[in-house]
Amino acid sequence: SAMEYTLLLTIFLLAVFVGFEIITKVPPTLHTPLMSGSNAISGITLVGALLTIKMDYGWFAQTLGFLAVVLATVNAVGGFMVTHRMLEMFRKKKG
């Protein structure tokens, strides 16, 4: 409904402003980990993929949905893990 779309748009705009504000000064060593960590967060599309896999949506939607689940899971799981590895590496270098 129209009301629903305005609410979703409000949420979107507020989150955009939060996204702009939380990144201020980032030390150069954290550029790549931050990029990697936020890339893992964009794997949230996994939630959308799950919602497309229902019996009554037919095999075509479920096939696309399955592929999307696989790809988004690689993005999220792999992304958080590789970010952790990067950060561990920096910590070891320092200590």
């Binding site: 996204g19 967060i41 964009s42």
Partner: peptide, 13 residues
């Protein structure tokens, strides 16, 4: 929310 957070912060980064 998560998507637009990444969209906006990614632009700043």
């Amino acid at each position: 929310i998560a998507g637009s957070l990444v969209g906006a912060s990614g632009l700043i980064l």
